[in-house]
Nucleic acid binder design. Structure first.
Lengths: 338, 338
DNA sequence: CCGATGACATGAAGCGGTTAAGTAAGTTGC
DNA sequence: GCAACTTACTTAACCGCTTCATGTCATCGG
């Protein structure tokens, strides 16, 4: 296996200095068009590839971005969201010859630690920050370290970080409006992790909508997104004195669990109970009855996020990118209130 | 933002040369215990982190491994397997300060291309190869390029690459044995992508088991793991002249789809039809009836794979690592044959 | 015809480590 | 008491690329 070619090899073949080669390969001024073409041709011919290590040492970009996920594996596995999101991110990154560093960590501290390390080792050009929780220290930490970051979620006040978000509140509104329209007055919400910012946004939107429509009852139960807690929450709601006629869930797995619980309690869906899932996937389709869900293009969401990251590291462009609001897809699990 | 500390900073504070610092930090001989301790203390105090770039330029490892997944996003999203596997991989890698580069590609050619790039740019120390298909060129390509690789699947003849695998054939045997024991004589198999090696292994095992038990019928239908094809395959099997009394599926989503189809055809599960899922997850638990499944510790599978990779790059250790065979977890979807 | 201006290219200094080779002590053996 | 090692460290070259200061022409305005 022969030594891999370097710009010095190209330089000697082209009869120029390595500096000229560097300028040519990076499309910077300082070389004539003729020389540039010659250099590019030689580079291609001898199969030259830049050494990321050398580039990063010389202070330039490393063409890699980090994504840290702080959720337990079993939750991550059951949530189609993440893989679809990653897939969207990847499609944009790989088209731009940028690598994705993925790290799954058990908790918030580990997430901070991971960012510190990556940055200290100059492994990444920036990070994608997902699953922000209330009082999340990460944006501040990143700003302090000077790590370029894109926030997936509501833009932070006071920090000039680009953010990519979708209007969860509007989506929740559309669900409540829909349920109210078909006659429901007792609507419950089974929420995800209460510490997550988007859970709080949704819960606030839900409560505001309940207020607006003057619902008879609008209880909110928090869970950790798992089937167990979804089932438990549902059981509690359905055995309460003031049983809801419709329940919305923050993901699809819990909505599926709800179907089980309803069956177990001999409550028929959708005749006696309507169910809405907060995420859409094949899971909702495959059930009996199929589940009404909030759907959005998650792959696109990931792609926009990656693009925002590239824009940020390329020319420091920040800004807020809003993605389309999720739309309600009515299926067989919702019907007029009993 | 102060400049990050380098070994030169440590050296000047400790009053030694950078060479000595390097030896000390890497646990190599050439420095006294006292000096070493002093250096380590200073390094810790000033928060020194090695620069991967500098290290890798100096010819050492880059502490990163690649994982390339060649499946469509929607399949990846619905298969808890991948995230769990990645989670296992990650746990071992991050404990060893090694990064995971993830790339999702649309097809096989793109996968090859991705490896070439990563390797050419010296971004990775090695790759994890999953989802081998029949006549897969990747092991040969990797051997040719000299990329350290760990095969997730059956070891390749003729190539000295470490492999981590589980005995799918034995798992399939246990399923068929179980079904035969409770009286089934017409058992069908709804397989995953026929091009994948492990699908072929399982199908062969299934057919051998059918032969051994002299089953009345043992049809095999291929799918792409999606709900749609799983449902379609089930429909075809259940409306055929020689309707099976038990069907096994290569993942859990298709088994869930089967429940739907059975319901649609008014075939009761498990009285008239038994269903077995090839992967276990919360999905199987949450159904009505809950689904009998083959379960295995996927996180552990990923962890072993990562460990094999680390062993390989550390000291060239190859070898075959076998993980525990999946075990059958009987639930409510299987019962004695009608 | 001269000095100023650009365009193009060179040379060399870093970036932050690793490591072979060199050196100055202290230790050992006989 | 001296050669032969060992130990503990230093020195400096090197990895591949970027970039700034510098240099050399050809061209142009006056």
């Amino acid at each position: 296996m022969s030594k891999r070619p370097t710009i010095a090899d190209i330089a000697s073949q082209a009869g120029v200095s390595t500096g000229a080669v560097s300028y040519a390969l990076n499309g910077r001024p300082g070389v004539s068009a003729a020389t540039r073409d010659r250099i590019l041709a030689i580079a291609k011919e001898i199969g030259w590839h830049p050494s990321v290590a050398a580039r990063s040492m010389a202070g330039s970009r490393v063409n890699a971005v980090g994504l840290i996920l702080a959720r337990p594996a079993r939750v991550l596995g059951m949530e189609p969201f993440f893989m679809q999101f990653i897939s969207g991110v990847e499609s944009v990154l790989s088209a731009n010859r940028t690598a994705l560093l993925l790290q799954l960590v058990p908790d918030h501290d580990a997430a901070d630690e991971a960012v510190r390390f990556w940055w200290a080792e100059r492994r990444i050009d920036g990070v994608l920050v997902m699953d922000l929780w209330a009082d999340d220290q990460r944006p501040a930490l990143l700003a302090e370290l000077g790590v370029p970051a894109v926030i997936v979620g509501r833009p932070r006040k006071g920090l000039d970080l680009p953010a990519v978000w979708s209007d969860d509140a509007a989506a929740i509104d559309s669900v409540v409006d829909y349920l109210v329209t078909i006659g429901h007055r007792r609507i419950a919400r089974v929420a995800g992790l209460p510490s997550l910012e988007h859970t709080q946004i949704r819960t606030a939107a839900f409560q505001a909508a309940a207020e607006r429509h003057k619902l008879d009852s609008a209880p909110v139960v928090s869970t950790d997104y798992t089937w167990e807690e979804g089932a438990q929450a549902t059981r509690r709601l359905l055995t309460s004195a003031d049983r809801p006629t419709a329940i919305t869930y923050d993901n699809d797995l819990m909505a599926v669990a709800a179907l089980s619980v309803a069956h177990e309690l001999s409550i028929s869906v959708p005749d006696q109970l309507s169910i809405v899932a907060g995420d859409d996937s094949q899971l909702c389709l495959v059930q009996h009855p199929s589940i009404t869900a909030l759907a959005r293009d998650i792959v696109d969401y990931g792609a926009r996020t990656a693009q925002a990251m590239l824009d940020l590291v390329a020319d420091g462009r920040t800004g807020v990118h809003q993605t389309p609001t999720a739309t309600l897809i009515p299926r067989a699990s919702t019907a007029a209130a009993p």
